[in-house]
């Protein structure tokens, strides 16, 4: 099969987007009953639930730390979330992404505020259409905020890709499959720092720099959607809380 055309004569992408255009994004906070905090996100065809349980006692007990809390993260995909049915159990990819997401979240969570306790973060991918790790961490941050876990910042993320030599924002699965590169980026915007960064493919130094700038600009918009989702969850009249 010959490689499909990814950028048309008008410079538009396979789904009609401009190179610097995000897919439609929907976020909702507080969607699950039994977690301490939860969120749901849709980015194009990507759909993810994130749930947080804790802080609670550490299991198993020997992993307990006397001076700070323990963060666990599990990134997991439903078998039917991908084109070819994913076998049950955790794949190597899921184990790697769980680690990457946990480390990114550890940079903002104030672990020292819950010593001898642990917080579990569960990212459940219901449908994967590219950008699941970035959408996943965006939703996980909202779930942590919903659970009242102290954090220095809320993480926002997107991916930059390269298709037919053009840098494009928020690549979908098709572009990821046939394109030249995929660079997921997560930042703590208020801290102006990167918390997750990977590259899968080939990019020049200049492209990496420009790609980061594109991601940062997009992340401002993603952040607004996160803030809006949190405000919708907690619309509160001040008089409502007077004791």
């Amino acid at each position: 099969m010959s490689k499909p055309k990814l950028i048309d004569e008008n410079g538009l992408r396979v789904d009609g987007r401009r190179p610097d255009e995000l897919r439609p994004i929907k976020m909702e906070v507080g969607v699950l009953e039994k977690t301490d905090g939860s969120a749901y996100i849709e980015v194009g065809g990507t759909r993810i639930y994130a749930g947080v349980i804790g802080p609670r006692e550490v299991h198993p007990k020997h992993l307990e730390l006397p001076d700070r809390g323990v963060l666990n993260c599990r990134y997991h995909m439903a078998s039917f979330s991908v084109d070819e049915r994913k076998p049950l159990g955790m794949t190597r990819r899921e184990i790697e992404l769980s680690k990457i997401l946990r480390e990114a979240l550890e940079t903002v969570v104030l672990l020292e505020e819950f010593p001898r306790m642990m917080v579990d973060i569960f990212v459940e991918v219901i449908q994967a259409d590219g950008g699941t790790r970035t959408a996943g961490i965006t939703a996980a941050s909202l779930a942590l905020a919903d659970a009242g876990i102290p954090m220095t910042d809320i993480i926002s993320a997107t991916a930059v890709g390269k298709v037919e030599g053009t840098l494009v924002l928020d690549i979908n699965e098709f572009e990821d499959k046939y394109g030249e590169a995929d660079m997921p980026v997560a930042v703590a915007p208020q801290l102006n720092s990167i918390v997750l960064l990977q590259l899968n493919g080939r990019m020049t130094v200049e492209e990496v720099e420009r790609g980061l700038e594109m991601a940062q600009a997009a992340i401002k918009k993603i952040r607004e959607i996160q803030v809006d989702a949190l405000k919708r969850r907690y619309r509160v009249e001040p008089e409502g809380l007077e004791a």
Partner: peptide, 10 residues
Amino acid sequence: ENDLVIPGQL
């Protein structure tokens, strides 16, 4: 006073 604030907000 009583504004809703989120983590990282100055």
